[in-house]
């Protein structure tokens, strides 16, 4: 038997126990995520170069950033890459999902084939596509050995086209995932509505446009948010395929941040670019998560 005073203490501990057990994780997140965000945010306002410095210089780094050719290339590339990557993934994913949803007998075999690239590291994907698109080894060489001697495909070596090769590899990696998201959405649609529409004489195309696609709105939204945030974070794939080249033609914000911070010793500017990346992601993630959480709270 425990004495009453110590049992009261035990009660107190018990009441606090859940918060106590959660606190290390939460403290880690506060420090390593939010503390670090503040730290990097502050560095972006200082004259840090090789090492962090705490001399405040205002928004000069952001001003410099806007004038840097490499940064503008990075933003332009992100726009091209992101736009194509997101739209092709969505179109391809939706198409695959609709086709797979037609009572395909071998669905169980096809689905994992469409999805396995998602299990691979971007470095592996990058290696595969880098050589696949390499003129000396890959597609061009192969077509030429087949007798198409004039065949040329050297986008990966071409300053103006290299960014599109990243799109090709990234779409290959993620489109199966988008397919899975849409397929889950399709499987959630009420079949009665479909049947009724069919009886009313709606054609196949009409059926999808009027009934199915509107019901897939949540899946569209999720796919868009996930793909956008992946696009902004894209780093490994670029490193593996082109390492930002030829020249700096495939620079993206993530590679820019890394090279300015760690190779060029412009930590202030590098921090600024990281802050901008965070701001881009937050502007789509925060509203999305907020909506999802509120929705989750209601049901």
């Amino acid at each position: 038997m425990i004495s009453s005073s110590s049992s009261r203490l035990l009660d107190k501990i018990r009441a606090w126990l859940p918060a106590l057990v959660l606190s290390p994780s939460f403290a880690a997140i506060l420090l390593f995520v939010y503390g670090f965000i503040i730290f990097t945010g502050y560095l972006s306002l200082t004259d840090s170069r090789l090492l962090p410095s705490f001399d405040f210089v205002g928004l000069i780094n952001y001003q410099k950033l806007l004038g840097l050719r490499h940064w503008n290339t990075a933003l332009k590339n992100l726009a091209i890459f992101g736009g194509l990557y997101i739209s092709i993934c969505v179109i391809l994913g939706l198409l695959l999902a609709i086709l797979l949803d037609q009572k395909i007998r071998v669905e169980g075999i096809l689905r994992p084939i469409y999805l396995y690239p998602m299990a691979l590291s971007f470095i592996v994907t990058g290696t595969a596509w880098k050589w696949f698109l390499d003129p000396g080894f890959g597609l061009e060489h192969t077509m030429q050995t087949w007798g198409f001697l004039d065949f040329q495909f050297r986008w990966i070596k071409d300053r103006n086209m290299a960014i599109y090769t990243i799109v090709i590899a990234a779409v290959w990696q993620s489109s199966g995932f988008v397919m899975a998201m849409f397929l889950a959405g399709l499987r959630g649609i009420d079949t009665e509505i479909m049947k009724a529409a069919q009886i009313d004489g709606a054609g196949n195309f009409q059926l999808y446009r009027r009934i199915v696609l509107p019901q897939l709105r949540p899946a569209f939204l999720s796919a868009f948010v996930v793909l956008t945030h992946l696009a902004i974070k894209t780093y490994d794939l670029v490193v593996a395929m082109t390492n930002g080249g030829p020249g700096r033609a495939t620079e993206v914000p993530a590679t820019f941040m890394y090279s300015y911070t760690f190779t060029r010793s412009q930590m202030g500017i590098g921090s600024g670019s990281a802050v901008i990346m965070l701001a881009m992601i937050a502007s789509i993630m925060v509203p999305y998560l907020y909506a999802e959480l509120r929705q989750g709270g209601k049901t």
Binding site: F26, F36, T40, I232, Y235, M267, A274, M285, L289
Partner: peptide, 22 residues
């Protein structure tokens, strides 16, 4: 709820933002 929200958002940050302090 707030704690969870903060933890959730941490999943999606671009890790470039924590490289230097880390």
């Amino acid at each position: 709820g707030v704690m969870f929200g903060l933890m959730l958002f941490s999943c999606f940050i671009p890790f470039q933002i924590v490289l230097i302090p880390m």
